[in-house]
Amino acid sequence: MSDIVVETKDGVAVVTLNRPHQRNAVTYQMWQHLAELFEGFNDNPAVRSIILTGSGNDFSAGADISEFEAVRSGLEESKRYEIAVDAAGDAIYRVSKPTIAALRGYCLGGAAHLAMSCDFRVAQNGAIFSIPAARLSIVYGVSATRKLFSLVGVTEAKRILYTGKRFSADDALINGFVDQVGDDALSAARSRAAEMAENAPLTIKGAKFILNGCARGELDRASAEKLIDLASDSGDYLEGRRAFKEKRPPLFLGK
């Protein structure tokens, strides 16, 4: 049985962390696999939007601490481990398709990094959040902390990281960690993903690149202009104009 399961239907890929008996705790190999998987989505025309979720009752309890003695026992091992974690998070953050985290049960530690790397976070009632790095004498990574800061602001980020305390789905909605709370996170995520899968991929790719660059204060203006030009010179732009004129839904191909 695979620790990560991918199912694609009608343009929506659902990526499921699949270790329910370990609350979907993420192993070193899973961090590496997630990076490869999300990088591969960039060149997969069958995937128009992506949902990241967990099997069973939880999104994920975070990194699999039980393997730390083997894979993160010293300084060099810790550095290598953090590189893998950041590679996974940044691959999710940078993938050109819209991403939604469907969160239920536990979303702790490194799992919060995965969730924050998505464009949107939908939490199920009863979901529990925490970043307990301070209880392990681990400094939460720069990439993950940057994402936390951009979502909740500096004061709330300090509270979350300094205390390591758990907070509820309602608290997460208030502080900005998630943008929706409901009875069925996966169903809500599917509805949103399906809606975005119908829209122009080149528009979403360009908008995501520009917005992420603005959020990080490091927008590559030349690359942004290339994406704008690519969309303006595409068959999809022609299709959008034709569909508008003919009063029908457009059929976008991403080129």
Rank of each mutant, 00 (worst) to 15 (best):
G56P: 08
K147G: 02
S168E: 02
K9S: 13
M1E: 09
R23P: 01
F41V: 04
P45N: 12
G40Q: 07
Q180Y: 15
G240M: 11
A127H: 05
K9H: 10
A70E: 15
V154L: 11
E82S: 10
A115D: 00
S234A: 07
Q29M: 08
D220Q: 12
R121Y: 01
S2W: 09
A63M: 13
N175E: 14
G213P: 01
C118F: 01
L151H: 03
Q22G: 05
A46T: 10
K205G: 02
V181D: 00
T16A: 06
L161D: 06
F129Q: 01
I100Y: 00
E39G: 06
A133L: 05
A224E: 02
A91G: 05
L202M: 12
R23T: 05
T16I: 06
S60Q: 06
A134F: 06
R135C: 09
A123V: 05
N175A: 12
E76M: 08
H113S: 10
N199W: 11
N18P: 01
N125E: 14
D170A: 05
N125D: 11
C107S: 04
Y93S: 02
K255D: 12
E225V: 15
R19M: 05
R80C: 07
N175V: 14
N24H: 12
S49P: 08
D183E: 13
K147L: 15
A207T: 11
E218W: 05
A243L: 08
K255E: 13
S73E: 12
K147R: 15
I50L: 02
A144E: 08
A169V: 01
G176C: 14
S191Q: 13
L238Y: 08
R104T: 00
H33C: 03
I51H: 01
A115I: 00
A87G: 08
N175L: 15
L186I: 09
Y162E: 14
R216L: 11
A35Y: 03
G153V: 07
H33Q: 14
N125R: 14
R135I: 09
D43E: 09
V181R: 00
W31Q: 03
S143Y: 11
G182V: 07
V85F: 04
T145V: 10
V6R: 10
K97V: 07
D86G: 05
A123L: 07
R80A: 14
G74P: 06
N57G: 15
H113C: 06
A91I: 08
I128K: 02
G240Y: 03
R216I: 01
V6T: 15
A61W: 00
A88Q: 05
I138W: 09
I83F: 07
V95Y: 02
L148G: 04
L136S: 12
G105C: 04
K79L: 12
E225L: 14
V6W: 04
L186E: 04
A222K: 15
V178E: 00
Y140D: 04
G109K: 00
A169W: 00
G74I: 03
S150V: 07
A133D: 15
Y81W: 15
L103R: 00
S191I: 11
V15N: 01
